[in-house]
Amino acid sequence: MTGPAPHREYTDRLTAGSLPYQSCDGCLSAVFPPRVICPFCGATDLGWRESAGLGTVYSTSVIAPRDADPYPVVLVDLDERFRIMSTVVDVPAGDVRIGMRVRAGIDPGGPTGPRVVFTPEERETAS
């Protein structure tokens, strides 16, 4: 018998083009990264949801390798109330700001396979 394999479920859904997360049937919390038990209430009934992909940059750091272009590492708070580490593309690394509204997309060619990345949302709101 096979049990739940949340990481496999996550990567399958990501590869299909969505930003998946879990929602707890017990306390209604959003749960990320994927788990087999809710870290807020201990319930084991976690259902999958698809994020609308809109979020706000919570923090950002630009890494400047000696031999490559600088890139931002960000934490994004999704509107569904979960946070992920990611990066923001299509904008100079130093232009990424805390409070910036961003939209998720899938980068199929990440260093460890498909990954979620963000682009600035055009109708940027003041933070």
Binding site: H7, G110, P111, T112
Partner: peptide, 12 residues
């Protein structure tokens, strides 16, 4: 023990 949900973004 678990797959990293951070490594893909190459934090140092």
């Amino acid at each position: 023990e678990l797959p990293s949900y951070e490594a893909a973004y190459r934090p140092r």
